[in-house]
């Protein structure tokens, strides 16, 4: 049953890779079925090492899938493309380039914009993510939160069909993280880009997303789908809403079932992808 309204459609996605050290095939993700609707912000949560980041990398086209199908607007995903842009967990900024230079790097790599246009639009984008006045600063002069803003601006400047976010706030301190969540919602509400957001932070998932998907433990697949019926725009007070807490309990319980596994399965000696 192919849903024509879906932006991203994953059907029975399997991702495997070869582990040289143990000389064995490692299944990170097995049978993921999910759909991301146009204009939706979908969050995936799951126990660590469940393959959620691996799945996102496959959506970006960075790693191939071993089975199933993965389509964006009906087109098979085989490699990175202009219709997707990733916001990485580690900012991955070129240390010798200024903020401006880093923000234009995405479109520069795609070759999708003239230099003049890229710079002009990058300046707007920098303002949008709240970095006005820091155009000429170097990444090492910025705080972690500011670096992630650059990371976000770089992705937004490419104007993708779909935004992929790989735990972008995981490395930030609690306060900065909350600020960034608020900022992200503000920016997202202006563009309403279809977005897939990976996180291990349940609150973050509920706060940001229209729907939250819980992955099972490795090999990961969709366990539960929770519709988040909280009105937008959401400010930080939503996090104390009774409904919010109900969602949190529901998701936490679902994840907890996945954590309650025999110890030997947790220490299979395989690094998290």
């Amino acid at each position: 049953m192919y849903d024509r309204s879906a932006k991203l459609a994953a059907k029975g996605v399997v991702i495997e890779y070869w582990l040289q050290r143990s000389r064995s095939l490692f299944t990170a993700v097995k049978g993921v079925d999910l759909e991301v609707r146009p204009g939706e912000l979908l969050a995936i949560v799951g126990p660590s090492g469940c393959g959620k980041t691996t799945f996102l990398n496959a959506v970006d086209g960075l790693i191939p899938i071993a089975g199933g199908s993965l389509t964006l607007d009906g087109r098979e995903i085989t490699k990175p493309g202009r219709d997707r842009a990733m916001v990485f967990q580690q900012p991955g900024l070129l240390p010798w380039r200024t903020v401006l230079g880093n923000v234009v790097f995405g479109v520069e790599a795609q070759g999708s914009m003239s230099k003049g246009e890229a710079i002009a639009r990058a300046k707007q984008q920098i303002e949008l993510v709240g970095l006005k006045g820091f155009e000429d600063a170097y990444p090492l002069e910025l705080s972690g939160g500011m670096q992630q803003r650059v990371n976000l601006a770089r992705a937004l400047l490419t104007d993708p069909e779909m935004l992929l976010l790989d735990e972008p706030f995981a490395a930030l301190d609690a306060q900065t993280r909350e600020m960034m969540q608020l900022e992200l919602l503000k920016i997202w509400s202006q563009t309403r880009k279809t977005a897939l957001f990976i996180t291990h932070d349940i609150k973050e998932a509920i706060y940001l997303a229209d729907r939250v998907i819980v992955f099972t433990r490795r090999p990961g697949r969709v366990k539960t789908v929770v519709d988040i019926d909280l009105s937008r725009p959401r400010d930080l007070r939503v996090k104390r809403d009774p409904q919010f807490l109900t969602y949190e309990d529901e998701i936490w319980e679902s994840i907890q079932e996945e954590l309650a596994v025999p110890a030997e399965r947790l220490i299979a000696g395989v690094p998290a992808a």
């Binding site: 960075l62 202009r82 842009a85 990733m86 990485f88 991955g92 790599a109 795609q110 070759g111």
Partner: peptide, 16 residues
């Protein structure tokens, strides 16, 4: 991480 960023944005080998 930098190489991954370049690849994700579809950078050619020459540009990378």
């Amino acid at each position: 991480a930098l190489l991954r960023v370049a690849r994700s944005f579809g950078a050619s080998d020459a540009l990378t």
